[in-house]
């Protein structure tokens, strides 16, 4: 694991108690909120290390919150229906789709977006690899691809199987990388270079 990934992993898990060792364990133990349709509700979430204390309408998605209210426009809206992966971000280190995530449900969570991957003025190795291998053309899918790929390598290290690895018992074949990245579409078809970029980061370990 590189120093950068170390940083991110550490940052993602700040505030998560040991009892939450399961991937999705609860990070929050405040009084359970209740709000009516006309109300906004309190929500506090940490995005790229910055804590935001917000009053939110429950219907605001995490994607719209970031793009429209917090001016974090690095995360892209491709389809808004869970079909393309352009809006992929990390929630407590796990890749999720911000377009199908209601922001209010993320109370207490730590979100990492493409804007939060670099640290100390240094690009994340995955960002560097995408540049080096020309892993994009128009760039619209790229922030989702990179966030997805960062979490994917973490999943592989933690033993997460894929439909391909279950049967071949091999991880990180080209076929396995494609399967594990199938939640991120690229309309420009930069796939071969995306696979090469991810492989190079994986090999550097």
């Amino acid at each position: 694991m590189s120093a950068h990934e170390d940083d991110i992993t550490r940052r993602d898990f700040v505030g998560v108690t040991v009892a939450a060792a399961s991937l999705y364990g609860g990070a929050v133990a405040e009084a359970a909120p209740v709000s009516g349709p006309a109300d906004t509700a309190n929500c506090s979430l940490t995005i790229n290390g910055h804590r935001h204390d917000l009053q939110l309408e429950p219907r605001v998605t995490l994607l719209d919150l970031m793009r429209e209210q917090l001016h974090l426009t690095g995360t892209k809206k491709g389809c808004d229906h869970g079909q393309c992966g352009a809006c992929t971000v990390l929630s407590d280190g796990n890749r999720v789709l911000s377009c199908l995530t209601l922001a209010i449900t993320q109370d207490g969570r730590h979100i990492t977006t493409i804007e939060g991957l670099a640290s100390g003025g240094q690009l994340h190795p995955m960002q560097e690899a995408f540049i080096e291998h020309d892993g994009f053309q128009c760039g619209f899918c790229t922030s989702g691809q990179i966030c997805s790929a960062v979490a994917m390598l973490k999943e592989v290290r933690s033993g997460m199987p894929s439909a391909v690895s279950l049967n071949t018992k091999q991880t990180m074949t080209d076929e396995d990388i494609r399967e594990r990245m199938s939640g991120n579409l690229c309309r420009c078809g930069a796939y071969p270079n995306i696979v090469a970029a991810i492989r190079s980061v994986e090999q550097r370990g």
Binding site: V96, L100, T101, S148, A151, P161, L166, S182, G183
Partner: peptide, 15 residues
């Protein structure tokens, strides 16, 4: 496991 991994995408399966 096989059936679950055949469905949706890793992001969606995480959610």
């Amino acid at each position: 496991s096989e059936a679950i991994l055949a469905g949706a995408s890793p992001q969606i399966r995480n959610m």
